[in-house]
Design a protein around this nucleic acid. Structure first.
Lengths: 347, 347
DNA sequence: TTTAGCACTCCATTTTCCTAAGTGCTACAG
DNA sequence: CTGTAGCACTTAGGAAAATGGAGTGCTAAA
């Protein structure tokens, strides 16, 4: 109040906001995140030590800049997408986790009997519980894995189990039905051949290699090579596509006040959660660090914010964890949580 | 209309309903299933060839029996739980599938490149789409599988992949970190031993066998047997617990008119869909055939009907498929669909 | 630059009113 | 005894009107 004339756009690097404007925006965003109700000028008087009229003026300015919006002519203000963006980029500071949160998460990571991937999953479940947002864990697709072994186990006369193992420890298996006319030796030969030719090949090149190198050869000395070939082809192509995905708290969206009288929107979002391809697409073109996609910034749904980050464990397993919530997400807290988890994954 | 005095409780085995009453109940149930709106006496005049007053009398009687209910004093009637039950037990006949439905499902089952379990899953997705109910496929837990092979693949010096295969084609794998001091030979010996002693054992007895037969022996000639033993122990115990579960169309509930102004109930149901233990419990104490649990007859949720059946493929894979929908479910159609699928699973 | 004051706007809630769609019951007809 | 017509009564649900209150924008003064 005393020094704002000086600090205007000098002390703060905040583009063109005075420190008071910045503080105002912060208050509005954080208030709205809590209450989901438009914020009035009066309610901020005490916090800013000035009259509601003054605040209204500033609000008007922030609205001109496109940082705030009104729901109707005489309503209080709510942050616009741009407002959230500004808040996230220039104002917000990641929040320390509360002791309670830390405790719960540490319990999971300290439990050494858990494989890391299970620990990640469980911790995201906790995070979803703590935040009331939807949590997603996407294991990286195995495209860059290389085949390290192919194995076949007979189950019954006409049924085989094919197992493919990659250098990073991913395993895919597929049961195959074969015509009875294929002999054991033919199968064995084929497997040997595949092992010889395919081992070391990246998963996403296997299909081509099967087609052009393996198929011609087995064609020569396996009578019914088609069936056998198709079975393997299928197993490998499943592998390339597969990538693990887990979700927790998808139904949290129902109780959000912003959607409480728009069942249709809820329905839309929830059914997007069932669309695996769409969920997979969240993984795409990710930079490092924690990324935030507010409303129309994400491809998933205009009405949500997605905040996500990649992880990599010390043994090379990669993936993405993401939280999906309303645009008025508790950004500071969520970032703190994700940061914590990300760090602990690197053990 | 002419012969009802005669048929009263003779021709129809229907406990104590005249044929007209039975017909009335049928009309009300089926109408309500379609519209979700209380059924008025007037609307049934044409179908029953009598006046609304007569129908009201009959309705009154059915209400006394507890088969019908009113939503308020002057509303039309809706079926009670007991009413649905009576309908299902005595009135309804399973419906032939429409040509369209048959076609869609047959395409899936005819696609021979699909392993059966995938076909089941896909067909349930279709069923969910066709009916707008939630579909669930529960693979039977692997408890009664027997170990048919244990395999170890080295990934890095200190990292192993253990793979366990059962006679029914289930595969479980687990990465294990080992202290560097364990030599390859020790691992190989252990695996050989396990294969010798464990193969053929049902999954749920493996733990005991490991503890009392394997552990003492490897203790003798493997220096750091603890770590190795623990790793295998963990892999097997994961296996025993795991049981596959898949769900489609969980969000369908949102659009049901009966819940349209009760978000809380929707939220409740949807979050039950996220509770895996609860979902698993659907499998419990199942008799043969197709079972129907209406409203409070099921443990899952008072407001839904669950209709489910076990399946067993010709190669011994077992599981349960279930549809969860509102109490006013299209019982006849759903039964037809499940029947069809069940039959085709037995190929 | 800030603030007090005032006119104005719009939402949200409540109230009232009305209609349409039902029912139950009674009394009569076959 | 069974079915029906008629009528009084109940309730949901929607439309319109009334009201209160929480906001805003703007102007003029400190």
């Amino acid at each position: 109040m005393k020094e704002h004339t000086i600090t205007k756009s000098i002390k703060e690097g905040d583009d063109m906001l005075t420190s008071r404007q910045s503080k105002l925006l912060k208050l509005i965003v954080e208030d709205y995140i809590k209450t989901a109700k438009p914020i009035s000028s009066k309610s901020l008087c005490k916090s800013l030590n000035c009259s509601s009229a003054t605040i209204r003026n500033e609000m008007g300015y922030l609205e001109e800049l496109g940082l705030l919006e009104k729901t109707h002519t005489s309503s209080g203000r709510i942050p616009s997408e741009k407002g959230y963006r500004y808040y996230v980029d220039h104002i917000m500071k990641p929040k320390e986790l509360s002791g309670d949160d830390v405790l719960k998460l540490q319990q999971i990571f300290k439990n050494h009997s858990l494989v890391l991937s299970d620990a990640i999953k469980q911790s995201m479940e906790i995070v979803s519980e703590l935040t009331n947002y939807t949590a997603i864990v996407l294991g990286k697709s195995s495209k860059d894995n290389r085949v390290s072994k192919v194995e076949v186990v007979p189950l019954e006369p006409t049924k085989l189990l094919a197992i493919v193992i990659t250098d990073k420890g991913h395993v895919e298996h597929k049961a195959m039905m074969l015509p009875e006319t294929i002999s054991k030796e033919e199968v064995t030969k084929t497997v040997e051949l595949i092992n010889k030719l395919i081992v070391g090949t990246p998963i996403d090149e296997v299909s081509a290699k099967l087609e052009f190198e393996v198929k011609p050869i087995i064609g020569k000395y396996v009578t019914q090579h088609e069936a056998l070939y198709n079975a393997f082809y299928q197993a490998f192509s499943d592998f390339a596509q597969e990538s693990k995905m887990q979700m927790a708290g998808a139904s949290k969206f129902i109780s959000l006040p912003e959607f409480s009288d728009d069942t249709e929107k809820i329905r839309e979002i929830l059914s997007k959660f069932e669309d695996k391809d769409l969920i997979q697409s969240i993984e795409k073109n990710e930079e490092d660090g924690i990324n935030i996609y507010i409303g129309s910034e994400n491809e998933f749904d205009q009405n949500v914010t997605i905040i996500k980050t990649n992880y990599e464990t010390d043994d090379g397993e990669e993936g993405t964890i993401a939280l999906i919530g309303p645009k008025r997400m508790e950004y500071d807290r969520v970032i703190g949580l994700l940061d914590f988890i990300k760090k602990h994954i690197g053990e």
